[in-house]
Design a protein around this nucleic acid. Sequence first.
DNA 1: GTGGTCTAGACCACG
DNA 2: GTGGTCTAGACCACA
Lengths: 121, 121, 121, 121
Amino acid sequence: MIQVNYRDPRPIYEQVRDGFRQLILSGALPEGEKLPSVRELAASLAINPNTIQRAYRELEAEGCIDSVPGRGSFVRRSNAAALARRKELTEALCAAAQELRTLGLSEEEILTITKEGTGDD
Amino acid sequence: MIQVNYRDPRPIYEQVRDGFRQLILSGALPEGEKLPSVRELAASLAINPNTIQRAYRELEAEGCIDSVPGRGSFVRRSNAAALARRKELTEALCAAAQELRTLGLSEEEILTITKEGTGDD
Amino acid sequence: MIQVNYRDPRPIYEQVRDGFRQLILSGALPEGEKLPSVRELAASLAINPNTIQRAYRELEAEGCIDSVPGRGSFVRRSNAAALARRKELTEALCAAAQELRTLGLSEEEILTITKEGTGDD
Amino acid sequence: MIQVNYRDPRPIYEQVRDGFRQLILSGALPEGEKLPSVRELAASLAINPNTIQRAYRELEAEGCIDSVPGRGSFVRRSNAAALARRKELTEALCAAAQELRTLGLSEEEILTITKEGTGDD
DNA sequence: GTGGTCTAGACCACG
DNA sequence: GTGGTCTAGACCACA
C-alpha cells in the first residue's frame, strides 16, 4: 500500500505522508476508508510508530484524514487539501518549465517533455 | 548578484550553488568570468564563509566552475553540467505533470500551466 | 437530540455530555424528563455504550441528572451545575477578550463581537 | 520567558507553543528576535528537547517563526498568523457569550464580564 | 553550536 | 484495540 525507500533523501515520514496524500487525492482511497493503524503500519513497514504518527498528524493538519483517538484514522478528501496540492504542483511545474527555457529548450521540446507518460508518444 | 532567503527551506549553500548554476547555465555569466571571492561574497551576504566555500566546491564538482587556488573561481560552462541539470528538470516536470493528471486535470489544462510565463497568453 | 462529530477534536463522551448539559441548563429538557437509555442512545448514534455511560456518569457527578438503576436517567437541573458551568464560561470569555486586547483590538470591537448573534445588529 | 504547568491538562508542547505565540503576536517579542535554542530552552524548563522542537515546528507551520537549521529560530510575526488567531478567539468568545445567554444571563451582565480586567470597573 | 529525523519504549485517554 | 504525548538518547546536516 505504501513503500518507503531508505535511499530516498526525503525523510521517511514525508514519504509516508506524500504516499497517502497521493492515494487519497487521486481517489484511490475512497472517502471514509480506514487507514492502517499507526502500530500496524509501523510493524508492516518495520518503522518506528512515532514516525508513522507524525505522517498521520501532518495529513490530519492538511485536512486529508481524520484521526479519532480510540477509533482510527479515516480518509477525508477535502477540497481544500486538493486545491493546496494542486497549487504546489502548478508552481513546481512552472518553475521547471521556466528554467528549461533559460537552458535554451524550445517551447515545443518542453511541451513534449510535459506529455511524456501520456501514451501520446 | 545572488540572494539568500532564510524562509526558504533549502539550506543556504544550496541557494548559493543553485543561484550561480542558473546564472552560468543560462549564459548570464559568460565563460571565463571571475566569481566573487569566498570571503568577499560571504561578507556581502553576511554568511559564514564555510557556506560559500561549500557552494563553490559543489559547483566545481559539477563542472560549472574552475577554482584556481590563489587566483579565484571562474565560469566554465561545460556541456555535462547543462545536461545533468536538464535531466533533473525534465524529471521534475514530468513528475509534476503526472501528479496533476491524477488530480483530474486535463492534458489541455496542464499544457496551459506549462506555457504560463511565456508571453503566449 | 444529540449529535456527535468525528472531526471535533473533543472526545465523543465530552460531546455527548456537553450536549445534554446544554439542553438541560438552557431549559430545553424540563426537570424530571427521562433521558434515552444508554443502550438506546448508543444504538442510535452508532457509538460504544461505554462512551454513553461515561457521559451520563459525569452528568450525574455534576448534578445535572439522576440515574436510577433499573429505571433510567432523569433531568435534575440543579443550581450548582448551572453555577459551575457559568463560572467556566465566564472564565473562557474573559480569557478570549483579554487576548484579543493584546492583539490590538479596541474595547468597542470586542463588545461588538460579543454582541454578534444577538439580533442587535 | 515561558512557563509550563504540569497540572494544566494541555500537553506541554501546546503550552510552550501558545506561550510563544502570545508573546509574538502581542508584540512582546519583536520581529527578527532570536528564540532560545531547542536544547537551551529544554534544559532551562527541564523538558525533553523533542517536546520543545514540536512546539517550534508548529509555530513555524503557523508562520509565527522561521527555524533555520544551523542558525536558530527567529520571530516572524506574519499577518496571516495574527488573523488566524484572531478568528479563533472571536469564535471562542462568541460561543461562550451565546451559551451564557442560554443560561439566562442578560446582555448587560455578559458585557460586564467581557469588560473584566479592563480597569473600567 | 544549530535545527531535524529517527528509534525504543513508557504511559495515558478513549472506545 | 485506537491515537496521542513524552522521554532518553543517537545520529545527521548545516553554519
